[in-house]
Amino acid sequence: MKQRLQKIIASSGISSRRKAEDLIKNKRVKINGSLASLGSLADPESDDIKLDGKLIVPEEKKYILLNKPEGYVCTMKDTHNRPIINSLINISERIFPIGRLDINTSGLILLTNDGNFSNIVNHPKNRIVKRYIAITKKPVTFQICEALQKGFYLNDGFVKVDNAIPVNNNIGIQIDIHIGRNRIIRRMLEHLKNPLLNLKRTKIGNLNLYGLELGRWRTISKDERDKLLS
């Protein structure tokens, strides 16, 4: 299938899309022996695509599930020299996190080099539910669970969860939610005057942390991916 050339170059792990555009502008890329230009389309399966005379080979797609510890950031680089989650994963392919967990949140996060997979998992319209366990400063009441499920307005719009139930003798709350916004659970609980002490994500769709120690990772199987996206 024909794709934009800069997308093919980025998917091969050679560079970002923006840097791929520079490679094309600088006349370093050829398709089937002819110089490429911005806007060129190519089929990575059938076309001969070369950078500086070397064949560009599509990078193998990787799908990783990580049990993230607190203290790690979900970025490719960090200007404050904090540890990044990619340092926990010893593979050669360039992968990126699907969504984020903030530095003080632990638990399940997915990483990949497949942009289409990432977009499907992240988009709210696909209603892939994420489960969190939150430990709060005060006991969790029925009224808090009801308010989370009915929803309310924050400064960036209306928010609600799919399900909320007390756990751990009411000192915590299990939250299922399919929408994703920056620090949404922390902000929702602060709005309800019961701030977080600890937050952990335990599930994304059918994927969970069963048997996976903190800081460890594993590959997501094709069957698991198919079920997640079904």
Rank of each mutant, 00 (worst) to 15 (best):
K125H: 10
L101A: 08
Q143G: 00
N119W: 06
G151I: 13
Q149E: 15
F142R: 01
G151L: 14
H123M: 11
F142Y: 02
N155K: 12
I165P: 00
G107V: 11
K160H: 12
K125P: 07
K125V: 12
P139A: 11
V167G: 08
P166E: 10
G172V: 04
S92P: 08
L101S: 09
R94W: 04
T112R: 02
N168M: 13
N126F: 14
V140E: 01
T136H: 04
L154A: 08
F142M: 00
V140R: 00
V161N: 03
P124H: 11
N122D: 10
N155W: 01
K160Q: 09
T112D: 05
A147S: 14
A147C: 09
G107Y: 07
L110T: 02
V140W: 00
G115D: 08
S106Y: 11
I98D: 02
T136L: 15
L101K: 10
R127E: 15
T136P: 04
Y153G: 03
N170I: 06
D176K: 01
Q143V: 02
D114P: 11
D162M: 03
D114H: 12
V121I: 15
D102C: 06
N155C: 04
N168Y: 13
D102K: 08
I171P: 00
N170G: 05
I109Y: 02
N163M: 11
L108A: 06
A147H: 10
N113W: 03
L154H: 07
S106M: 12
K125T: 13
I95M: 13
I120Y: 13
S92V: 10
G115M: 09
